[in-house]
Protein backbone atom coordinates (compact mmCIF):
# COMPACT_ATOMS: atom_id res chain seq x y z
CA UNK A 1 0.00 0.00 0.00
CA UNK A 2 1.34 3.41 -0.90
CA UNK A 3 0.34 6.88 -1.94
CA UNK A 4 1.19 7.65 -5.56
CA UNK A 5 0.75 10.62 -7.79
CA UNK A 6 -0.08 8.73 -10.93
CA UNK A 7 0.09 10.40 -14.31
CA UNK A 8 -3.25 10.36 -16.04
CA UNK A 9 -3.33 8.63 -19.41
CA UNK A 10 -6.95 9.53 -20.07
CA UNK A 11 -10.21 10.25 -18.25
CA UNK A 12 -13.19 10.00 -20.53
CA UNK A 13 -16.78 8.98 -20.82
CA UNK A 14 -17.16 5.19 -20.98
CA UNK A 15 -20.81 4.31 -21.46
CA UNK A 16 -24.11 5.22 -19.86
CA UNK A 17 -23.46 7.03 -16.57
CA UNK A 18 -19.87 5.78 -16.40
CA UNK A 19 -16.47 7.30 -16.88
CA UNK A 20 -13.15 5.54 -17.32
CA UNK A 21 -9.93 6.82 -15.81
CA UNK A 22 -6.57 5.34 -16.75
CA UNK A 23 -3.42 6.24 -14.86
CA UNK A 24 0.20 5.15 -14.86
CA UNK A 25 1.12 3.74 -11.44
CA UNK A 26 3.54 0.86 -11.97
CA UNK A 27 4.24 -0.16 -8.37
CA UNK A 28 0.60 -0.01 -7.38
CA UNK A 29 -0.62 -1.76 -10.53
CA UNK A 30 2.01 -4.48 -10.26
CA UNK A 31 1.04 -5.51 -6.75
CA UNK A 32 -2.73 -5.20 -7.13
CA UNK A 33 -4.81 -8.32 -6.56
CA UNK A 34 -8.29 -8.89 -8.02
CA UNK A 35 -10.99 -7.10 -6.04
CA UNK A 36 -8.70 -4.65 -4.30
CA UNK A 37 -9.44 -0.96 -4.48
CA UNK A 38 -7.80 2.47 -4.50
CA UNK A 39 -8.73 5.68 -2.73
CA UNK A 40 -8.69 8.77 -4.93
CA UNK A 41 -8.14 12.32 -3.78
CA UNK A 42 -9.64 15.04 -5.87
CA UNK A 43 -6.93 17.65 -5.82
CA UNK A 44 -7.07 21.37 -6.19
CA UNK A 45 -10.31 22.05 -4.37
CA UNK A 46 -11.29 22.13 -0.71
CA UNK A 47 -14.39 20.10 -1.44
CA UNK A 48 -14.79 17.24 -1.45
CA UNK A 49 -12.86 16.77 1.73
CA UNK A 50 -12.50 12.99 1.79
CA UNK A 51 -11.05 10.61 -0.75
CA UNK A 52 -13.31 8.47 -2.91
CA UNK A 53 -12.88 4.67 -2.98
CA UNK A 54 -13.03 2.77 -6.29
CA UNK A 55 -12.38 -0.77 -7.36
CA UNK A 56 -9.63 -1.13 -9.86
CA UNK A 57 -11.41 -1.97 -13.09
CA UNK A 58 -8.44 -3.20 -15.02
CA UNK A 59 -4.67 -3.44 -14.95
CA UNK A 60 -2.75 -3.20 -18.23
CA UNK A 61 -0.94 -6.31 -19.48
CA UNK A 62 2.45 -4.80 -18.68
CA UNK A 63 1.05 -4.01 -15.21
CA UNK A 64 2.10 -0.38 -15.36
CA UNK A 65 -1.30 1.24 -15.72
CA UNK A 66 -4.62 0.82 -13.98
CA UNK A 67 -8.15 1.84 -14.78
CA UNK A 68 -11.09 2.94 -12.66
CA UNK A 69 -14.62 2.80 -14.05
CA UNK A 70 -16.75 5.20 -12.09
CA UNK A 71 -20.33 6.25 -12.08
CA UNK A 72 -21.07 9.95 -11.74
CA UNK A 73 -23.06 10.04 -8.53
CA UNK A 74 -22.52 13.26 -6.59
CA UNK A 75 -20.08 16.05 -5.99
CA UNK A 76 -16.91 13.96 -5.88
CA UNK A 77 -17.40 11.82 -8.95
CA UNK A 78 -18.81 14.85 -10.76
CA UNK A 79 -15.63 16.80 -10.04
CA UNK A 80 -13.50 13.83 -11.08
CA UNK A 81 -14.80 14.14 -14.63
CA UNK A 82 -13.54 17.72 -14.89
CA UNK A 83 -10.57 17.97 -12.53
CA UNK A 84 -8.64 14.82 -13.46
CA UNK A 85 -7.14 15.57 -16.86
CA UNK A 86 -5.07 13.77 -19.43
CA UNK A 87 -1.35 14.23 -18.67
CA UNK A 88 -2.27 15.61 -15.27
CA UNK A 89 -1.80 13.69 -12.07
CA UNK A 90 -4.08 11.68 -9.85
CA UNK A 91 -3.46 11.20 -6.13
CA UNK A 92 -4.10 7.52 -5.33
CA UNK A 93 -3.65 5.33 -2.29
CA UNK A 94 -3.58 1.60 -2.90
CA UNK A 95 -3.79 -1.26 -3.35
CA UNK A 96 -6.25 -1.44 -0.47
CA UNK A 97 -8.16 -4.21 1.24
CA UNK A 98 -8.50 -7.91 0.66
CA UNK A 99 -9.77 -9.02 -2.71
CA UNK A 100 -11.29 -12.14 -4.24
CA UNK A 101 -9.86 -15.60 -3.76
CA UNK A 102 -10.00 -18.33 -6.37
CA UNK A 103 -10.21 -21.92 -5.10
CA UNK A 104 -7.01 -23.82 -5.90
CA UNK A 105 -8.38 -26.21 -8.50
CA UNK A 106 -11.25 -24.16 -9.82
CA UNK A 107 -12.31 -24.94 -13.38
CA UNK A 108 -15.38 -22.78 -13.72
CA UNK A 109 -16.71 -19.80 -11.77
CA UNK A 110 -19.71 -17.52 -12.04
CA UNK A 111 -19.53 -13.77 -11.51
CA UNK A 112 -22.66 -11.77 -10.85
CA UNK A 113 -22.72 -8.00 -10.91
CA UNK A 114 -25.19 -5.18 -11.01
CA UNK A 115 -24.61 -1.60 -12.03
CA UNK A 116 -21.29 -0.20 -10.99
CA UNK A 117 -20.74 -3.33 -8.90
CA UNK A 118 -19.69 -4.88 -12.20
CA UNK A 119 -16.55 -2.72 -12.06
CA UNK A 120 -15.04 -4.99 -9.39
CA UNK A 121 -15.22 -8.08 -11.63
CA UNK A 122 -12.84 -7.61 -14.59
CA UNK A 123 -9.66 -7.98 -12.48
CA UNK A 124 -11.07 -11.30 -11.29
CA UNK A 125 -11.93 -12.34 -14.85
CA UNK A 126 -8.37 -11.49 -15.96
CA UNK A 127 -6.87 -13.56 -13.15
CA UNK A 128 -9.24 -16.46 -13.81
CA UNK A 129 -8.42 -16.37 -17.52
CA UNK A 130 -4.70 -16.45 -16.78
CA UNK A 131 -5.26 -19.62 -14.78
CA UNK A 132 -7.39 -21.22 -17.46
CA UNK A 133 -10.58 -20.92 -15.42
CA UNK A 134 -13.81 -20.49 -17.35
CA UNK A 135 -15.87 -17.50 -16.27
CA UNK A 136 -19.63 -17.17 -16.72
CA UNK A 137 -20.85 -13.62 -16.23
CA UNK A 138 -24.34 -12.59 -15.17
CA UNK A 139 -24.63 -8.85 -15.43
CA UNK A 140 -27.52 -6.59 -14.72
CA UNK A 141 -28.18 -2.88 -14.89
CA UNK A 142 -30.96 -0.38 -15.08
CA UNK A 143 -30.41 0.35 -18.76
CA UNK A 144 -28.40 -1.23 -21.54
CA UNK A 145 -25.66 1.48 -21.70
CA UNK A 146 -25.00 0.95 -17.99
CA UNK A 147 -23.85 -2.60 -18.56
CA UNK A 148 -20.09 -2.09 -18.36
CA UNK A 149 -17.28 -4.57 -19.04
CA UNK A 150 -19.13 -6.51 -21.75
CA UNK A 151 -16.11 -5.94 -23.99
CA UNK A 152 -13.77 -7.42 -21.40
CA UNK A 153 -15.72 -10.65 -21.03
CA UNK A 154 -15.96 -10.78 -24.84
CA UNK A 155 -12.15 -10.58 -25.11
CA UNK A 156 -11.95 -14.02 -23.52
CA UNK A 157 -15.14 -15.25 -25.19
CA UNK A 158 -16.58 -15.84 -21.72
CA UNK A 159 -20.33 -16.40 -21.86
CA UNK A 160 -22.34 -13.43 -20.58
CA UNK A 161 -25.99 -13.28 -19.61
CA UNK A 162 -27.32 -9.75 -19.35
CA UNK A 163 -30.39 -8.29 -17.82
CA UNK A 164 -31.78 -4.78 -17.83
CA UNK A 165 -34.68 -3.41 -15.85
CA UNK A 166 -36.15 -1.92 -19.03
CA UNK A 167 -36.48 -5.39 -20.47
CA UNK A 168 -37.64 -7.53 -17.53
CA UNK A 169 -38.16 -5.54 -14.38
CA UNK A 170 -39.02 -8.35 -11.98
CA UNK A 171 -36.72 -11.15 -13.00
CA UNK A 172 -33.24 -11.51 -11.55
CA UNK A 173 -30.15 -12.22 -13.58
CA UNK A 174 -29.40 -14.94 -11.04
CA UNK A 175 -32.44 -16.89 -12.30
CA UNK A 176 -30.31 -17.70 -15.34
CA UNK A 177 -27.40 -18.68 -13.10
CA UNK A 178 -29.61 -20.94 -11.00
CA UNK A 179 -30.86 -22.67 -14.14
CA UNK A 180 -27.37 -23.17 -15.53
CA UNK A 181 -26.03 -24.36 -12.20
CA UNK A 182 -28.43 -27.31 -12.42
CA UNK A 183 -26.51 -28.49 -15.46
CA UNK A 184 -22.88 -27.52 -14.93
CA UNK A 185 -20.71 -27.44 -11.85
CA UNK A 186 -19.38 -24.08 -10.63
CA UNK A 187 -16.47 -24.01 -8.21
CA UNK A 188 -17.19 -20.55 -6.81
CA UNK A 189 -19.59 -17.65 -7.09
CA UNK A 190 -18.78 -13.94 -6.86
CA UNK A 191 -21.27 -11.15 -6.53
CA UNK A 192 -21.33 -7.38 -6.16
CA UNK A 193 -23.57 -4.40 -6.56
CA UNK A 194 -26.92 -5.57 -5.24
CA UNK A 195 -28.31 -6.97 -2.00
CA UNK A 196 -31.03 -8.86 -3.83
CA UNK A 197 -28.52 -10.58 -6.09
CA UNK A 198 -26.27 -11.26 -3.10
CA UNK A 199 -29.09 -13.07 -1.29
CA UNK A 200 -29.91 -15.08 -4.40
CA UNK A 201 -26.26 -16.04 -4.98
CA UNK A 202 -25.82 -16.90 -1.32
CA UNK A 203 -28.89 -19.16 -1.34
CA UNK A 204 -27.65 -20.93 -4.44
CA UNK A 205 -24.16 -21.29 -3.00
CA UNK A 206 -25.52 -22.86 0.16
CA UNK A 207 -27.73 -25.23 -1.78
CA UNK A 208 -24.82 -26.35 -3.93
CA UNK A 209 -22.20 -26.16 -1.19
CA UNK A 210 -20.02 -23.83 -3.25
CA UNK A 211 -18.02 -20.92 -1.79
CA UNK A 212 -19.40 -17.50 -2.60
CA UNK A 213 -17.76 -14.12 -2.17
CA UNK A 214 -19.18 -10.64 -2.22
CA UNK A 215 -17.56 -7.24 -2.66
CA UNK A 216 -19.01 -4.76 -0.18
CA UNK A 217 -19.17 -0.99 -0.06
CA UNK A 218 -19.33 1.29 2.92
CA UNK A 219 -18.72 4.98 3.44
CA UNK A 220 -15.07 5.49 4.31
CA UNK A 221 -12.94 8.22 5.81
CA UNK A 222 -9.44 6.78 5.28
CA UNK A 223 -9.68 3.53 3.34
CA UNK A 224 -6.57 2.09 5.01
CA UNK A 225 -7.76 0.91 8.40
CA UNK A 226 -6.99 3.89 10.63
CA UNK A 227 -10.38 5.45 11.32
CA UNK A 228 -12.59 2.40 12.05
CA UNK A 229 -15.27 4.29 10.16
CA UNK A 230 -16.22 1.79 7.46
CA UNK A 231 -17.55 -1.12 9.48
CA UNK A 232 -20.43 -3.36 8.59
CA UNK A 233 -22.01 -6.00 10.81
CA UNK A 234 -20.74 -9.47 9.93
CA UNK A 235 -21.60 -12.97 11.08
CA UNK A 236 -18.66 -14.59 12.80
CA UNK A 237 -19.84 -18.08 11.89
CA UNK A 238 -21.81 -19.48 8.95
CA UNK A 239 -24.50 -20.62 11.36
CA UNK A 240 -25.11 -16.96 12.32
CA UNK A 241 -25.46 -16.05 15.94
CA UNK A 242 -22.48 -14.04 17.06
CA UNK A 243 -21.80 -10.88 15.09
CA UNK A 244 -19.07 -8.27 15.01
CA UNK A 245 -18.32 -5.01 13.28
CA UNK A 246 -15.58 -5.29 10.69
CA UNK A 247 -13.90 -2.62 8.61
CA UNK A 248 -14.73 -3.02 4.93
CA UNK A 249 -11.46 -1.38 3.89
CA UNK A 250 -9.34 -3.71 6.00
CA UNK A 251 -11.11 -7.08 6.27
CA UNK A 252 -12.93 -6.57 2.96
CA UNK A 253 -14.07 -5.24 0.62
CA UNK A 254 -14.49 -8.91 -0.29
CA UNK A 255 -16.25 -11.10 2.25
CA UNK A 256 -17.78 -14.56 2.17
CA UNK A 257 -21.48 -14.15 1.43
CA UNK A 258 -22.38 -15.95 4.68
CA UNK A 259 -20.48 -13.29 6.60
CA UNK A 260 -22.66 -10.46 5.37
CA UNK A 261 -25.96 -11.73 4.01
CA UNK A 262 -28.57 -11.01 6.68
CA UNK A 263 -25.88 -9.97 9.19
CA UNK A 264 -27.29 -6.51 9.80
CA UNK A 265 -30.89 -7.73 10.12
Amino acid sequence: MEQVFASVVFNRHLTGDYWLLEAEAPALAASLLPGQFVNVRIEGSAAPYLRRPFSVYRVSRDRRRLQIAYKVMGEGTGLMTSSIRENGRCDLIGPLGHGFSLPANAKRIAVVGRGIGIAALPTLADEAASRGIEVHAFLSARTRPNLVALDIFAEYAFPVVTHTDEARANALVTDALAALAQKVRFDAFYVCGSNRLARAVHALAQKQNVPAEIAMEQHMACGFGDCHGCVIAVNLRPSRGEKAFKEVCHYGPVFQTWEVVDASA
Binding site: A47, Q218, C227
Partner: peptide
Protein backbone atom coordinates in the same frame (compact mmCIF):
# COMPACT_ATOMS: atom_id res chain seq x y z
CA UNK B 1 -17.64 -3.17 19.84
CA UNK B 2 -17.98 0.52 19.03
CA UNK B 3 -20.97 2.17 17.42
CA UNK B 4 -23.22 0.78 14.70
CA UNK B 5 -22.67 1.83 11.09
CA UNK B 6 -22.76 4.12 9.31
CA UNK B 7 -19.98 5.75 11.30
CA UNK B 8 -18.67 8.40 8.94
CA UNK B 9 -20.29 11.06 6.82
CA UNK B 10 -18.58 13.76 4.82
CA UNK B 11 -19.61 17.38 5.40
CA UNK B 12 -18.23 20.51 3.76
CA UNK B 13 -14.56 20.75 4.79
CA UNK B 14 -14.94 18.15 7.47
CA UNK B 15 -15.90 14.78 8.76
CA UNK B 16 -18.95 13.89 10.81
CA UNK B 17 -18.29 10.65 12.63
CA UNK B 18 -19.17 8.44 15.51
CA UNK B 19 -16.91 5.46 15.81
Amino acid sequence: PGNPPPRVHEVPSGLHSSV
